[in-house]
Design a protein around this nucleic acid. Structure first.
Lengths: 351, 351
DNA sequence: TGAAATAATGTAAACGTTTACAATCCATAC
DNA sequence: GTATGGATTGTAAACGTTTACATTATTTCA
């Protein structure tokens, strides 16, 4: 493998017999240049297979055409759906995506943040680890907080109406005649979790139902906690016949516990309502109501705001946009196996 | 928000009353500097909250400390598990991850490849879209092909033994007494798919079983194709009572079709063996045997090879490493609901 | 015909670093 | 007292671009 050096603009200039300024002009098309010269340059470019050096350009222009995205976990399906959308929207605009995981740790989040800043990203999309986010306060890089809000932080925020949706699906459960509804999973420092619990409680109280402490099992947002919490729940003699589940991970854990260990009677009556409607949703057999967040629109708005702020075309105060998710009714009947909705990825069906 | 300029090394030098060379030396610790001077510099750095400009450094050093990762789809769980591992391993070494989706298109793959090259990534991890990968041939950037091999390409390759694993799980089905085993999903241009089919066929023929064309339904690797292929399969009067499924997406589609539409008799006897053992594996109720690829080790090796090649400490011919996956036995009994293995993410259990 | 305007191109500085080399200082040894 | 050398620091070039400004060639028009 010959260690041939990559050609620079100088090489092109020399080969074309022009100055490097002219080459630059041809490549960036921001000044008129004689068609003949242009052709000479293009030929030289083609011959050398020249590719401009983005690093040098970044240094000169003081913008890197890159966006940092900082999220709590890379392998979380919900987050990666967002990343996919962002990539799809940003890459046609010439932006690169620097993906960083804060690994669910505030400290790591701080480290990764300054890592991204050192690299001079033009903008940031943040899915915050927790409500402790003071380190995001003082930056002068365009920054959008996505999915999770941090109270008291003056930044652009894009979230779902977690409280309202939680309220809605809880109400659906009540409307179906469920009276003892448990709550599964949660984290007091995660904005979405707190909001969802709030909506859950509101729905219960508005319908004259008590919030039984015993059945509010909100420790953790992982599959494991879903599994063990459901185990705990089933140990109650008067176990709820319905659960509000805080997110998909907990949901999977809870479902698999039921599949493995619950008696038939429980499996035939148990009903879940939960957040997130992702590609494995059709497998979540106890789920009757799911909250589908409008990820594409949220990502689209994030990109809009970000690019506008980067270009300097948006100097308003930071905005907060709250999207209304749709409620997906996953099955109409109570039959254990009839799952009314088709697989979500290729044919979404909203109520 | 005051548009204060970020301080440069010059500002630090001025404040500390030294030359920029000294500042650089202090920061990079590659030359001895008087302890007193060092302290002055450190103080200035702290006072200005100076962060070195990574772009300028990249230009000078001709390395960006960044790795491009190019994959067919960002939201694919299997791929993102890999990305998570890579991020976890590379970020402590100071590398940034540029994530690009080729969106399952060879053309897009080419575009994204040159996009990454323009940005002077120090290395590349490629999960190829298809076996048409000549565009990867001539680069002089360190490059590792992960998960999918491209025949005839002289690059470092890290894959699972897809053929052997396919053989193994097919054999398990046969060992369980299954005689009519179908094949679900696939793509003639995807290396993993081809290998898996090969292993499947070998297992059948080695055991004297015919490969019935009718039951080899390999069109597509998506959830949708899993859904419709299973529909097609069930329309046969003599539908197989077991299926080899090419990957998780097809698996989800097939499972949800069965959950929705299959008669009880089918649901009680149908058995799947498939690739990929991911976090929603416990929900895949028809799955008896799953191939769990050693993603962490594969990622670890990829990072090792990549960093060695980047440092120039590895100049051997490209190597091909084939990892042996483990077979996860997901349930022992035929009972529809008894899923013997616990949720995978927090307690893997291999046979 | 010549001045002025226009078009096309070139020159050189700048972006923020790293680092080879030069320069200074000071102690030691003769 | 002067040479030697080590320790420390400074100077300036370089990385590959973009772009303000200068320069040259060409056209226009009084």
């Amino acid at each position: 493998m010959s260690k041939r050096e990559t050609p620079t603009i100088k090489d092109v200039a020399k080969l074309a017999g022009v100055s490097i300024a002219t080459v630059s002009r041809v490549l960036n098309k921001l000044a008129v240049v004689n068609p003949e010269t242009e052709e000479k340059v293009q030929k030289a470019v083609a011959k050398l297979n020249y590719q401009p050096n983005a690093v040098a350009r970044s240094l000169k222009l003081n913008r890197t055409k890159s966006i940092g995205i900082l999220l709590p976990e890379v392998s979380n399906t919900f987050f990666t759906e967002i990343v996919e959308q962002l990539e799809h929207l940003l890459s046609p605009k010439g932006y690169a995506l620097l993906v960083c995981s804060s690994e669910n740790s505030v400290d790591e989040e701080k480290r990764k943040l300054s890592f991204l800043l050192e690299r001079n990203v033009d903008g940031l999309v943040i899915i915050a680890v927790s409500d402790e986010g003071s380190h995001f306060g003082d930056l002068d890089v365009p920054l959008v907080m996505l999915d999770r809000k941090i109270e008291g932080l003056s930044k652009d925020v894009i979230v779902s109406d977690n409280r309202q949706s939680a309220y809605d699906i809880t109400r659906r459960l009540i409307g179906d005649g469920r009276r003892r509804i448990g709550f599964l999973g949660g984290d007091p420092h995660v904005h979405t979790s707190v909001e969802r619990y709030r909506g859950f409680v509101e729905a219960l109280t508005h319908h004259g139902l008590p919030v039984e402490e015993r059945f509010v099992l909100h420790e953790g947002m992982t599959m494991k906690s879903g599994y063990t919490l459901m185990e705990r729940a089933l140990s109650f003699e008067d176990c709820p016949d319905a659960f509000f589940i805080v997110n998909d991970m907990v949901h999977i854990g809870a479902t698999s516990y039921l599949m493995e260990h619950a008696p038939k009677s429980v499996r035939h009556t148990m009903v879940f309502a939960s957040f997130d409607y992702l590609h494995y949703a059709p497998l979540l057999r106890f789920c009757h109501y799911a909250v589908a967040q409008p990820l594409e629109e949220m990502a689209k708005l994030a990109v809009q705001i970000l690019t506008l702020r980067i270009e300097g075309d948006l100097t308003d105060f930071p905005s907060t946009t709250v999207f209304q998710p749709t409620i997906v009714v996953m099955k109409k009947s109570e039959g254990e196996l009839s799952n009314g909705s088709p697989p979500p990825r290729f044919n979404k069906e909203f109520s």
